[in-house]
């Protein structure tokens, strides 16, 4: 936390080294978040790229109110949501993630032979985007419901219900996999 504040302080004074260190510190986490949300590595890389370019453009005026990781995660989540909307608009079909999930051979077959994290990605892909977003931000990025609600511009009750419904759905998917 203190280290982040020092990095931001240096960054605001035009230190390229500070910007590089911030990037190195969070890049993998942010890319993981973007991939989980978008299920498309290329799009996810674009999102992280855009977030950092935008962040770099705020040099001298950037003010950190919470944690740097929380701030960047929120930026990635917002940018990913915009990309997802654009993609949905282009495809004019159901949720691309759900479509991708239904095109597969099913959760069980899809999971066989894969690593655990990859299996989770597949399961999460079957959730509606909003539920997936809240679950990932809370469980993978340690953001509180209050922070998520503020970042997404919705009420905390909405965030909590999305989280609850998301977990319920995830549980039912897992149960159906186990019973098959």
């Amino acid at each position: 936390m203190v280290e982040d504040k020092i990095l931001v302080w240096k960054f605001n004074r035009g230190s390229k080294d500070a910007l590089r260190r911030i990037y190195e510190k969070f890049k993998d986490d942010l890319l993981g978040l973007a991939i989980t949300l978008l299920r498309d590595r290329s799009l996810a890389e674009d999102v992280v790229h855009d977030v950092f370019v935008s962040f770099a453009g705020a040099v001298g005026t950037f003010h950190l109110s919470g944690t740097l990781k929380g701030y960047l995660s929120t930026c990635v989540a917002n940018s990913a949501r915009d990309r997802n909307r654009l993609r949905l608009g282009r495809d004019a079909g159901p949720d691309v993630m759900e479509a991708a999930g239904s095109n597969s051979d099913g959760p069980m077959e899809h999971a066989i032979g894969r690593e655990e994290s990859s299996r989770l990605q597949d399961l999460l892909a079957r959730l509606p985007y909003e539920q997936r977003e809240v679950i990932v931000l809370h469980l993978h990025h340690g953001m509180r419901f209050r922070e998520i609600a503020k970042a997404l511009g919705v009420s905390i009750n909405t965030v909590q219900s999305r989280y609850r419904y998301g977990l319920d759905k995830l549980r039912s998917i897992l149960n159906s996999v186990v019973t098959k």
């Binding site: 910007l19 990037y23 890319l31 992280v48 790229h49 950092f52 453009g57 040099v59 993978h140």
Partner: peptide
């Protein structure tokens, strides 16, 4: 869910592209 956090790493090309563009944006602002 927590235990299966995806462990991804960025590629060198992505690092180079992102950092170069970020530095350029930074210099432009300054």
């Amino acid at each position: 869910v927590k235990d299966r956090k995806p462990n991804v790493t960025t590629s060198r090309q992505m690092d180079k592209r992102t950092l170069n563009d970020s530095f350029a944006a930074m210099e432009q602002t300054i």
